[in-house]
């Protein structure tokens, strides 16, 4: 395995040789200064290579073998063929895109609330403390609570009934199940994005705000022409962190709220993989992991690309 790791760790540097602007300091090789950066990143990279990249490779290997009586037998792409015919797999892949459509909503909600807190609406200190509270709770608990809140005879539908809206079985209908879970996820995590936004607000130039006020700008004008341009970098950062949260943090809620249903309507990659492992089909689960991870990485990295530079390029 050490040989394997050795060869892997060479890959990144060899992928695009010479693209990194390396200052030419050949004479000062192996000094404290030249080795320091490598020593500083080494623990992180080593951990990720051993406990992320290596398991991934194991998983890729494993995906070409069979389950049950075919355990350990090389079966080529059979698992991948099986997946292509599984409606749950289709649903999981499609839903990754649905999930990413909800990212802008969370960013918007957190951004607008942070703006109001920054502008010191009455009670802003209180809101700032309280909005973070759901972040503290485990998704399992949040899911359990919202199961009750969203039930057909739950408080939300009571409210609907009171104002004359139709009753909706939020988690029991194909078209509303996943959006409901995502809505709860936003509720549960916007506090984190809010805190990041508030940190970003501290970098907004107070003089610009004062100038806007002197010019008689309205609140929406101030937000649109002063606050947003000043915050572009923070917004990008929140976009990335929210995307990560959506891609990796939905299992607990999904598990407790819909368990993928009704039908396969709310299946997500992590849930499908979990389910297949529970059905004693670990090799098939590995194949699903490979395909769905590629999908997640491509979409995720594309999204970051669309945001151009999330942070200063390194």
């Amino acid at each position: 395995m050490t040989a394997l790791l050795g060869s892997r760790s060479d890959v990144p540097t060899d992928v695009r040789p010479g693209t990194t602007p390396v200052p030419r300091r050949r004479r000062r090789r192996f000094t404290v200064e030249s080795t320091a950066p490598l020593l500083l990143v080494f623990p992180a990279i080593a951990i990720l290579l051993v406990f992320r990249v290596y398991p991934l490779i194991l998983g890729v290997n494993f995906s070409f073998t069979g389950d049950q009586e075919l355990n350990g037998v090389f079966i080529g792409l059979d698992n991948y063929v099986t997946l292509m015919n599984d409606v749950r797999f289709h649903a999981a892949a499609r839903n990754v895109i649905v999930v990413l459509l909800f990212v802008p909503i969370e960013v918007f909600v957190a951004g607008i609330l942070a703006t109001f807190i920054f502008l010191k609406v009455p009670g802003h200190r209180f809101y700032r403390s309280v909005y973070f509270l759901p972040v503290v709770l485990s998704p399992i608990i949040i899911g359990a609570i919202f199961n009750i809140v969203l039930a057909a005879n739950g408080p939300l539908n009571e409210l609907n009934r009171a104002v004359g809206l139709p009753i909706v079985d939020w988690l029991g209908q194909s078209n509303s199940a996943l959006p409901s879970v995502l809505g709860v996820h936003i509720w549960a995590t916007f506090g984190m994005a809010l805190v990041i936004f508030l940190a970003g607000f501290s970098t907004v130039d107070q003089e610009l705000l004062d100038a806007a006020r002197i010019d008689g700008a309205t609140l929406p004008q101030t937000i649109w022409y002063v606050v947003i341009p000043e915050l572009s970098q923070t917004i990008q950062f929140v976009f990335v962190t929210t995307t990560i949260g959506m891609l990796t943090g939905l299992f607990g809620l999904l598990y407790t709220m819909t368990a993928g249903g009704p039908g396969a309507a709310s299946y997500l990659p992590e849930f499908l993989i979990w389910k297949l492992n529970g059905e004693a089909k670990p090799a098939l689960a590995s194949a699903a992991s490979v395909v769905l991870l590629l999908l997640i990485l491509v979409i995720g990295l594309l999204q970051i690309r669309v945001l151009r530079r999330a942070t200063k390029e390194v």
């Binding site: 290596y54 494993f62 992590e270 993989i273 769905l292």
Partner: peptide
């Protein structure tokens, strides 16, 4: 997601 690499 953790589930992706859980078993390996």
């Amino acid at each position: 997601p953790f589930q992706v690499i859980m078993v390996p």
